[in-house]
Write a protein that binds this DNA or RNA. Structure first.
Lengths: 208, 208
DNA sequence: TGACAAAACGAACGATCGTGCTAAATTAGG
DNA sequence: CCTAATTTAGCACGATCGTTCGTTTTGTCA
């Protein structure tokens, strides 16, 4: 099986690019076919519905993400360095380095959060995996002694994700040139807090 | 000048609702007209293009936002309480409390970040105002002695915004019931860091 | 109430959407 | 090289998109 899945790959490549700019809904079959020099029906035949195309596009982007972000970062030493590598790789990913429209998952997250269907399901699964990966890397950092013992790694993953989203917003919408340093500053603060033993609590104590 | 701007208001009300779910692009004139029992052309006549409708919808949502979030929060005591009020009000706003599709601005941010035109310009202006407002409230907190003297209030605003975005993601996409407490936990950590005097920074050691 | 302006309607336009169907072109295997 | 399977193209469909235009209804004020 050669030719078919080859053009299919080309289609998904382009689809991910387009979707990163115009969203998964802005993805249109006619447009996509035109850009690739294919006929609408010829392209359509590869996927049997637009919904399927969207899901496949998400999957393709996820593979790209693993290639460009996850896999390289996992080569860094366990614990904090690996967490930092993951973060830095993500910053590059969210820029124009891979998908010219920014992070497709960030765009899809707000687009699909009210809808139902397989595309949403796929994205939710991916995002859970992503957050879990961060949490696991952080947990390894605890084992390595980089981070404090009782660290809530899920919370850290959640917070780091927030830093990434803020970066995406500052960089792509506001076009703030200080976005990267803002993001790194936030990252460092989170890591610092994760390193420190439970902070001394002044008068206004509060349980976590 | 009576009847016209009255229905115009009704249209924008509904438009904001729809856009919060389906995005500013998912907003369609025919759909909107049908839901309101108006004719497509009758509705269209109020705005003279779809682009104008989108801009007006953003503006309408901004007014709503000021009413439901900003204005009430500004009644809280200056400094940290006011910052907390702003944050709490935003959490409620981002839920289904006002716009059933979540925060329209969060959705629009990823939708418009690659496009150009008046809708994007309007949103950018709004988001800058919002971040500036947070920074100003934080700065007042410095004056009140709630926060440390050298605090980078813009950074704090940026970080808080990240917490809100992470909340939106966890709540609306992942439907994580722990989202509110995650968000509050992150907020508390940021405020705590803003309170504390600048942490001692030895080469690679932890803060005291 | 009658005249004038504002507002809503109805129909139509060209375009594009997703999706079928059938036929032609291309590829792969013996 | 011929054949069978796979891949692409062509064409058409109903629906919906934003937009325009002329007409009709509605509201306002002297």
């Amino acid at each position: 099986m050669g030719k078919g899945s080859e053009t299919r790959q080309l289609i998904l490549e382009r689809a991910a690019q387009t979707a990163s700019r115009s969203g998964l809904d802005g993805l249109t079959i006619g447009q996509l076919a035109g850009e690739l020099g294919l006929s609408k029906s010829g392209l359509f035949a590869h996927f049997h519905s637009k919904e399927a195309l969207q899901v496949q596009t998400l999957r393709h982007a996820a593979e790209l993400f693993v290639d460009r972000v996850v896999r390289p970062a996992l080569k860094a030493p366990r614990g904090e360095p690996r967490l930092r590598a993951l973060f830095e790789r993500w910053l590059a990913w969210a820029q124009a380095d891979v998908l010219k429209g920014g992070c497709l998952f960030v765009a899809a997250a707000t687009e699909l959060d009210d809808l139902d269907g397989p595309a949403r399901d796929e994205l939710v699964r991916q995002q859970r995996d992503w957050l879990e990966l961060i949490a696991n890397v952080a947990r390894t950092g605890v084992g390595e002694g980089h981070f404090q013992a009782g660290l809530d790694t899920e919370q850290l993953a959640h917070d780091l994700h927030g830093v990434m989203l803020a970066y995406h917003h500052a960089r792509r919408l506001l076009r703030d040139p200080r976005a990267p340093q803002r993001a790194r500053s936030a990252f460092d603060a989170l890591v610092r807090a994760a390193r420190a033993p439970r902070p001394a609590r002044s008068a206004r104590a509060r349980a976590s």
